[in-house]
Amino acid sequence: MALKGVRVVELAGLAPAPFCGMVLRDFGASIIRVDKMGQPEMDRLARGKRSVSVNLKHKEGAQVVRRLCRGADVLLEPFRPGVMERLGLGPTPLTADNPGLVYARLSGYGQTGPAAGWAGHDINYLAMSGVLSSLAGPDRAPQPPVNILADFAGGGLTCAMGIMAALLERTRSGRGQVIDCSMTEGAAYVSSWLFKSRDLLPIWGEEPGCNWLDGGAFWYGCHRTADDRHMAVGALEPQFFARFADLLGLPDLEQFPIDSAESRRLVAAAFASRSQAEWTAVFAGQDACVTPVLTADEAAASAQAAARASFVPGPRGGAEPAPAPRMSRTPAVGGGDEPRRGQHTTELLLEAGYAAEEVRRLIEDGAVEQCESRSRL
């Protein structure tokens, strides 16, 4: 696996940091997840990781994390600026201990600037990035696509890319570095085309929701079928539009104007005349850019997904996405059990060089927690 041998200490947080850690793990890294004692177990992105439960506010608990980082290649922390410094775990002491450490800081607004200390979630970062304003319509307020764009694309995935770049650079310099990953900046970065294409008329130009790719075109969007399902239409190029119109039974349909109320009515009525399965059979394999809108379970069970093993069994019985992209020599591996909070505390501290008696004392003093009965002590 591409990241085999890379050791990561991941401080538990909400979705972006666990996703970043999961990506690194899927591609071969070994992940130690540092869980907060007493926190509910809500992480669903912990597959294949090991968990140590630590009281970071306990002086010796913080020292446990510092010791773990001495033998790590990467530290991944998801807190607001200043939190790690107050714990004595900022970049200065940790990189003094381990000059090769890649110290990745994943936060909403970054480590500097007037908004650095603000609280927020995906919707706030997306709003401040300039991207959310584009996800609106004439009669619709801006609507985020759940928490995918800032948390996962602009946050977790961008941070993973930065970590891999820093690890590659370290092979030349021998030195680690601090990564300042702002989810606000990351959301803007993955949306670069929106910023850089604003002069492309007529693709853009009108208010949000009135353009080619944001719901303004009757041939780029979703249409309801007779069984109350949907078909997704992306008939952008003229040749695809012509095939789309023919298969829909509207050969005289004109592509422009894109906001023709009559054209939208005709297309809606046509799709409403048959079920999603019937329309899927009509458009399958045709160069019309029309596909069914599948549920998560349907996507996992689709012929395309089965042919490529695009999903793997999850720990709760359902399917979950396999790692992407594919690599020919060092493929990533998805799936795997999710640890209980503190499941591996004892074994990880022993691996870090603590004596058995020291581990017992740390547990008794409330600095760490062993949540499994099968202790090696």
Rank of each mutant, 00 (worst) to 15 (best):
V6A: 08
V8Q: 09
V9A: 06
V9H: 04
E10C: 06
L14V: 14
A17V: 15
F19T: 02
C20D: 06
C20M: 07
G21Y: 00
V23N: 03
L24G: 04
G28T: 03
R33L: 02
P40D: 01
D43T: 11
G48H: 04
K49Q: 10
N55D: 15
H58S: 05
E60K: 11
E60T: 09
A62G: 09
L68Q: 05
G82H: 13
G90E: 11
L94I: 02
L94E: 08
T95R: 14
P99D: 13
G100A: 12
L101M: 04
L101S: 02
V102W: 08
L106R: 06
L106F: 02
L106E: 00
G108S: 00
Y109C: 14
G113N: 05
A116K: 14
H121M: 12
A127E: 03
S129W: 03
G130N: 05
G130F: 01
L132R: 10
S133T: 01
P138L: 11
P145S: 09
L149Q: 08
L149E: 13
D151L: 04
T158W: 12
C159L: 13
A160H: 02
A160E: 01
G162H: 02
I163D: 00
I163P: 00
L167C: 00
L168M: 13
R198D: 06
W204T: 15
G221P: 04
C222E: 15
T225E: 03
D228L: 13
H230A: 02
M231Q: 11
V233T: 11
V233G: 02
L236E: 01
P238Q: 11
Q239L: 12
A242S: 10
F244L: 08
A245C: 04
D246E: 15
L248H: 07
L253G: 05
P257C: 05
R265F: 08
L266V: 06
A277G: 09
A277P: 13
A284C: 10
T291K: 03
T291F: 15
T295D: 05
A300L: 00
S302D: 07
Q304K: 09
A305C: 12
A307M: 10
V312S: 07
P313G: 07
E320S: 01
P325G: 14
R329H: 14
R329A: 13
T330S: 10
R341D: 05
H344S: 03
T345G: 02
A355E: 15
I363G: 03
G366D: 04
A367H: 02
E369N: 11
Q370Y: 03
R374H: 06
R376A: 15
